[in-house]
Design a protein around this nucleic acid. Structure first.
Lengths: 344, 344
DNA sequence: GCTTTATGAGTTAACGTTACCTCAACACTA
DNA sequence: TAGTGTTGAGGTAACGTTAACTCATAAAGC
């Protein structure tokens, strides 16, 4: 692997001193004569010595590193969370080590272990899916951990999360208020608890309004590609929807692309609502009506919680929930049938 | 810090076996009776045991982790690089540990040490600024390292980078071809070698055309906020520019915002070119003409190089340069004075 | 009944680093 | 001169884990 690992011993031998002396020089500890110091530094530099942090952390030095385990960085939502957390951590004098797990539970467990086993002083765990047994283990280990967006099994671990239900409800009600009656839904990835919340809000609202139609719900996976496909599926229905609520902004962009390729105008012929409020949502044309999580505030809360936990404060059962909020922009309008009636 | 660290010893004591036996059970090595195995697993689970990866890596096990050291995740450019690399790494069976350094050279050195010192099998180092002595050290250490976007001191370490000069040249020539004569420039952060390349292209091109005017160059820092300020500065000049080339897309958005707040239309009254081609550039209104780095290809190349290096292949002096490319969209048009002349 | 073999468990040592201690040499004070 | 303090260096042990051994015990083969 690593051609020739340079250790303290190599440096010590070259400088003609003991290992301990080298360690002291490099850590600025103890009293060392200028001559020795110079010789050691010269030797270390010559050999390209880099301290082995695994060994160092094994000796119990705090690392000033916060760990973050997150499913992926590919989706803008997670990228934003990582960004915001890195920002907060940096402001508090910590560095953030971000690990992606590709949603593989085994890997997740490993990465969490890597981080808590000496590498990081604390851990922010962005939970993709309720890993019940794992969380219980984590809980018992009493390591400084904060869960972000955990919706599954109840836990005593501190949790920071954003509501998806209320915001989704607001989105559907917004469409209903505009006069829409056939409202399609493209869901998020099957394993996501956030996706489940969004679907639940859609279902409850539509059922309460007596507008529920199973045909109007299409499975999705948060991606733009799937948005295109699902958009075509919905718009090919005998009674196509006049509005579509997508479980992510990317999916919403896909739906819009599908609509355009069929000659439909957004929002004149089709209203579209997304979820996430990624930066592109504000810059797109038309700008996208969407539901926003307050990501910076969430990251701030998570980092603050973890530092409090590391300081020894008891944060058991601290649960902080942030509201989601409908951001009305340009991608929604009254349904075309209403307009026609008006014009006649 | 960590309330009660659970080690193999604790598990062993509870299960009534030796430390080694526990290690064997948890690693599926050696021959263990079913009864013992069950007891050990039960004890480990009960105590919430998580292996200390520092100790483990100290014993020389490969970690299947690639390290990435990157200045920050806040700017979309770096976020995209991290995303793309995580994607590639994941496809090759590795996880990516992303470290941000806030551009602090001391931290940078530390993080690189952390990663190479046992945590990661290899390192992708996204270089913010030429840290000459550090790179020499790294080079001598013979660790598997790939530099991304290194432009400073020559090195034998493998380098993957994207050109900024040619793309910037193309951007300025595009504006010249449209008829612009007064072209403003908002530079990137002072310490960035990429920013320097962009400025160099602007200067050489404008000087060659006999259009150089120092007033037209404003210092920037890649941010949107600074784009707003610099935009106002440039548009307040006695002879304001009819086009502005910004060293980043965010800055370009800032310039556009400044122009709008002064009642100017883009691109009718002011043409704007950005740099980076962040996702929002395609979705903005008007969509942004910009210069793109082929980030996915770069990430792919970097990850491939690092895996080759880890496999023992000699990658000394391998330098791969990707071209930057002008992406023409809607934010540029002929200057208004030209139109007037035509109309008269 | 004795050797061979399989099985399950434990021992030892080492990875690279650092906290804590010891120790030699020398320069002061009383 | 003896005692005290300062300076510079080295020694020992420990962090948690695991590879390579060793060693009992019991089953199988002759």
């Amino acid at each position: 692997m690593n051609g020739n690992k340079v250790t303290l011993e190599h440096v010590a031998r070259l400088a003609g001193v003991s290992i301990i002396t080298v360690s002291k020089v490099l850590n600025n500890k103890g009293r060392i004569s200028e001559a020795t110091r110079a010789r050691v530094l010269q030797a270390a530099s010559q050999l390209g010595y880099v301290a082995n942090s695994a060994a160092r952390s094994l000796r119990g030095r705090p690392t000033q590193i916060l760990g973050m385990v997150i499913p992926e960085l590919v989706s803008p939502y997670f990228a934003e969370v990582a960004r915001a957390a890195a920002d907060c951590a940096s402001q508090m004098g910590y560095d953030l080590a971000v690990f992606t797990t590709s949603r593989d539970p085994e890997r997740e467990r490993e990465r969490v272990g890597t981080l808590l086993g000496g590498l990081a002083d604390g851990l922010v765990f962005v939970v993709p899916i309720g890993a019940a047994g794992f969380l219980a283990t984590l809980e018992r280990s009493r390591s400084p951990v904060v869960l972000v967006n955990h919706f599954g099994t109840p836990t005593h671990l501190p949790v920071v999360r954003a509501d998806s239900f209320e915001g989704s409800l607001a989105a559907i009600r917004h469409l209903l208020a505009l006069g829409h009656r056939r409202i399609g839904f493209v869901s998020g990835a099957a394993h996501s608890s956030q996706a489940a919340e969004r679907l639940r809000a859609y279902r409850e609202c539509m059922m309460a309004a007596g507008l529920w139609d199973e045909q109007l719900v299409r499975p999705g996976d948060f991606t733009q590609q799937r948005g295109v496909e699902a958009g075509h599926e919905l718009l090919s229905l005998e009674h196509p929807p006049t509005a579509i609520f997508a479980a992510s902004d990317l999916t919403a962009f896909g739906v819009i692309a599908a609509a355009r390729s069929r000659g439909l105008q957004v929002p004149e012929d089709l209203s579209v609502v997304g979820f996430d409020d990624i930066p592109a949502a504000a810059h797109s044309h038309p700008s996208l009506t969407t539901v926003a999580h307050p990501i910076p505030a969430m990251a701030q809360a998570a980092v603050e919680l973890i530092t409090r936990a590391m300081a020894g404060e008891n944060v058991r059962d601290v649960h902080i929930e942030f509201p989601s909020q409908l951001v009305v922009r340009e991608s929604c309008a009254p349904p075309p049938s209403n307009n026609r009636r008006k014009h006649r």
